[in-house]
């Protein structure tokens, strides 16, 4: 059929365009990190490969990249674990216990995530400054927990509603407390959902920029997106090779997570947004 062939051409063409669109900037990043000079795309420039940029980023005392990466990993992991634990408590209550105004509460939680971060970062800065927390991990972890909670609750509610309530009843009859039921029955049953939510919360915290920019002052707490954004050369020339090497190393953890747990992440993202 003529139409089927048209469909096939559209699909293959679209697939190629999609792949180029998604991967070309990544290619530019990787090539620049490994190329001797950033202007290697010019035909008259000879191509030379080097790992000097990667080595400089990992070892240079002036760049502080390993510290930024460590800060990012620690802050994001702590935020994700706390947020998902608090969110699972809330999601349990919202799906299993008789609460007045449950729907309104869910909407309210969603509404909170619609606030533009800039409308609270100034005031948050003052709070953190008044208690001397600027440039510390808690100054980032607390807002990140709050910021990832609405999303986490929404995703977990959609997972928890699918778990049969008979499991809870059995637990109650055996004399478990509600908390024990959550920890011993719901957590193992909803493990894939909990894991997906952890991944998403981690990635959101890892990628956050404005709070980290405002609430940190140097490498003892600054996260890697801010480190890369503020990365300037010493001599006026932008050190593209080193910036792109740092970019490669930065996106490595999140990209690996995204590739390995593709299905989980997509499921988590869409569970929060699409009603099935």
């Amino acid at each position: 059929m003529k139409e089927d062939r048209l469909g096939k051409i559209l699909t293959v063409g679209g697939a190629i365009l999609t792949a180029v669109f998604c991967l070309a900037p990544i290619g530019v990043m990787v090539l620049t990190a490994l190329a001797g000079r950033p202007d290697f795309l010019r035909p008259e420039v000879p191509l030379a490969w080097t790992v000097d940029h990667l080595r400089a980023v990992l070892t240079s005392e002036a760049i502080h990249f390993p510290e930024y990466l460590r800060n990012s990993l620690l802050v994001s992991a702590a935020s994700a674990v706390v947020a998902v634990f608090l969110a699972s408590l809330a999601a349990y209550a919202l799906t299993r216990m008789s609460l007045p105004g449950r729907g309104a509460l869910l909407l309210l939680i969603l509404a909170v995530s619609m606030f533009p971060p800039v409308s609270l970062v100034g005031y948050l800065y003052r709070i953190m400054a008044s208690i001397g927390w600027i440039n510390t991990y808690p100054a980032l972890i607390l807002p990140y927990v709050a910021w990832t909670l609405p999303l986490s609750v929404w995703i977990l509610v959609s997972y928890f509603t699918r778990i049969p309530r008979d499991l809870d009843r059995a637990g109650l009859i055996d004399g478990c407390s509600r908390l024990q039921i959550l920890l011993k029955i719901i957590f193992p049953t909803a493990a894939p959902g909990i894991f997906a939510t952890l991944l998403l919360a981690f990635i959101f915290a890892f990628n956050e920029f404005l709070f980290a920019l405002m609430l940190t002052t140097d490498y003892s707490a600054r996260t890697v997106p801010v480190g890369i954004a503020l990365f300037q050369g010493l001599h006026g020339q932008t050190p593209w090779g080193e910036i792109m090497a740092a970019a490669c190393l930065t996106i490595l953890p999140v990209v690996l997570l995204a590739l390995f747990f593709q299905r989980r992440i997509v499921q988590g993202l869409t569970r929060g947004a699409v009603k099935e």
Binding site: T18, N207, V255
Partner: peptide, 24 residues
């Protein structure tokens, strides 16, 4: 594989993609 590739730009921090496009 294409589905995985589509996830990559989403997972990259906007500050990092900003730097990549600054170079582009």
């Amino acid at each position: 594989m294409l589905r995985a590739a589509v996830l990559i730009p989403w997972a990259v921090p906007a500050a990092v993609s900003g730097r990549i496009f600054e170079l582009i």
